[in-house]
Design a protein around this nucleic acid. Structure first.
Length: 276
DNA sequence: AAAGGCGTCAACCGCGGTTCC
DNA sequence: GGGAACCGCGGTTGACGCCTT
């Protein structure tokens, strides 16, 4: 027996929401909360699928939704997180208060994706793990294929991460990556632009030094783990801790740090200068 | 002025994961 | 433990408005 339909298709209205429907939805949720979405339309007096109600609420009517154009900072955050997470729109949205996954997805597809410069996609496609042959092949592929590679690669990284990284706290992978992104190490790295500068960072798990060094096309970091220090209560094998931190940081540091990657954003966003 | 093309974005669809019984 | 119900996510569609010819 298959799954039941989420609603009686013949009896539900589809398409754009009328203001009266919005009002019914908001009024009901304000007074009673949404309860289970399946029974919501009946209770609220709406001829809509529960799923449709949920979508309308979460993507449009929720009071904390931030409407309007994306700021340059939001652009940059989306770019950086997309580089780390790929099309994990919900995870990206969780870092942008007031923005929904749907909004970010649409914004990416209609605005940001087309701004990815050739060089950046090339860089992403030719990650450190690629062989020289692979690199040369990659360079000869079409722009479309490279864009697809750039899109798929973060997912591949996450898969690798699942195998090697084993989030020590049992967090979902995305949370772990985001945790790393928000870590002191990442913050320091994100701010660092000076080639050959050495950064020493005490993370939650150990201490690492990082040297920003130029590579064939951009700056990347070389991570030298120091003596592991068990700062938190988490107990773990120190080798694994070193290894995990290395991989986590590699993951973060693989993101091009030449700032050029983001420069065009600022340049382009002159068009959107009115936006905040 | 009209028609076709294109871009944007709200909404829908189907699937996978989680929770509940 | 297994199945049903529910929720959330990502991909896709379609309506609408703007631009170009």
């Amino acid at each position: 027996m298959g799954r039941l339909a989420c609603c009686e298709k013949s009896e539900v209205k589809k398409g754009a929401w009328a203001p009266e429907e919005d009002k019914l939805l908001v009024d009901y949720i304000t007074k009673n909360g949404h309860g289970t979405w399946r029974s919501f339309p009946k209770l609220a007096g709406l001829r809509r699928c529960g799923k449709s109600c949920r979508l309308r609420w979460t993507n449009y009517l929720r009071p904390d939704i931030k409407r309007g154009a994306f700021s340059v900072e939001e652009d940059q955050t989306i770019f950086q997180l997309h580089s780390l997470l790929g099309n994990k729109w919900a995870a990206i949205a969780s870092r942008l208060p007031g923005r929904t996954d749907n909004e970010i997805k649409n914004y990416w597809n209609s605005h940001l994706r087309k701004r990815i410069p050739y060089k950046s996609t090339e860089l992403q496609a030719s990650s450190a793990s690629m062989s020289a042959d692979t690199k040369s092949n990659t360079l000869s592929t079409t722009n479309m294929v490279e864009r697809e590679s750039a899109r798929v690669e973060p997912d591949a990284r996450l898969s690798m991460d699942t195998i090697h990284l084993s989030p020590p706290t049992g967090l979902p992978d995305n949370d772990y990556i985001l945790g790393a992104w928000n870590s002191e190490a990442s913050e320091v790295f994100q701010k660092s632009k000076e080639v050959n500068s050495v950064i020493k960072v005490e993370s939650d798990y150990n201490v690492v030094t990082m040297q920003v060094e130029p590579t064939f096309a951009d700056q990347r970091c070389k991570v030298e783990p120091e003596e592991a220090t068990d700062i938190g209560s988490y107990s773990h094998d120190s080798y694994n801790a070193d290894k995990s931190s290395d991989i986590t940081l590699d993951l973060l540091l693989d993101f091009p740090n030449d700032c050029e990657y983001l420069q065009y954003l600022k340049g382009d966003s002159d068009d959107d200068s009115g936006s905040t």
